[in-house]
Amino acid sequence: MDGDQVLRLVAEREAAARAEWLRLEQEAAQITALIEGCRREVERLAITREVLSGLVTAPEDPVPAASDANPVGDFAGRLLRVLAEVGRPMRCREVVAVLGEDPSVARHGERVRHRLKKLAAAGLARELEPGLFTLADDSGSPSG
């Protein structure tokens, strides 16, 4: 085998190795996308299960009627205290962080959002725009 044949053989092997490398990188990117899709689906299903379990089983904090003088359970009470202490409209993610939970975990934010919406329906909080909550005016009486 002369020098030219050796170089040609090495070049062919290099081209084959490069093609395999690129194929594997594309496969890895596809797998990464599939993993991310599965992660999002698991997170979405966990949120759905948590919300539905609150509807199927006895709720942790029953939603009081707007005229109910003894309003809420512990978790909802904590949310109202956070809104009162901060004294300004807050996003759900901010409330989650103040509660000491991880705002990047969707189910934490969804739980807080769900409860704040119940408090707003009961007239104890107000949703100024989607996901932005504040304490209702006049210490809990409904406001428009």
Rank of each mutant, 00 (worst) to 15 (best):
M1V: 04
D2T: 04
D2N: 05
D2F: 04
G3D: 07
Q5Y: 04
Q5V: 07
V6L: 05
V6K: 02
L7V: 06
L9C: 10
L9P: 00
V10T: 11
A11Q: 05
E12P: 01
R13I: 02
E14W: 07
E14T: 09
E14I: 10
A15Y: 05
A15H: 06
A15I: 02
A16R: 05
A19G: 09
A19E: 11
E20F: 00
E20M: 03
W21H: 05
L22T: 07
R23Y: 00
R23P: 00
Q26I: 01
E27A: 09
A28C: 02
A29S: 08
A29Q: 08
A29T: 06
Q30H: 03
I31S: 01
A33K: 06
L34V: 03
L34T: 07
E36Y: 04
G37E: 08
C38I: 06
R39S: 11
V42C: 06
V42M: 08
E43N: 11
R44D: 12
R44Q: 10
I47Y: 03
I47V: 09
T48Q: 09
R49L: 09
R49M: 09
E50H: 12
E50R: 12
E50N: 11
V51P: 00
S53L: 11
S53Y: 09
L55D: 11
P59A: 02
P59V: 02
D61N: 15
D61P: 05
D61I: 11
P62N: 07
V63S: 11
P64K: 00
P64Q: 02
P64F: 00
A65Y: 07
A66H: 02
S67E: 03
D68V: 04
V72A: 10
G73E: 09
D74Y: 14
F75I: 14
R78P: 00
L80H: 03
V82Y: 01
V82H: 00
A84W: 01
V86L: 09
V86F: 07
G87Y: 02
G87E: 01
R88A: 05
R88C: 01
R91S: 08
R91D: 08
C92Q: 07
R93V: 06
V95W: 00
L99S: 07
L99R: 05
L99N: 04
L99C: 10
G100L: 09
G100I: 09
E101V: 02
E101T: 02
D102W: 07
V105P: 00
V105I: 13
A106N: 12
A106P: 13
A106K: 12
R107S: 13
E110C: 11
R111P: 00
R113Y: 13
R115Y: 12
R115C: 13
R115I: 14
L116V: 12
K118M: 11
L119T: 02
A120I: 12
A121K: 15
A121M: 15
A122M: 10
A122C: 14
G123K: 00
L124D: 00
R126S: 14
E127M: 15
E127D: 15
E129Y: 14
G131K: 14
G131C: 15
L132Q: 14
F133W: 15
A136R: 03
A136V: 15
D138V: 13
G140I: 01
G140H: 04
S141H: 13
P142L: 13
S143W: 14
S143I: 14
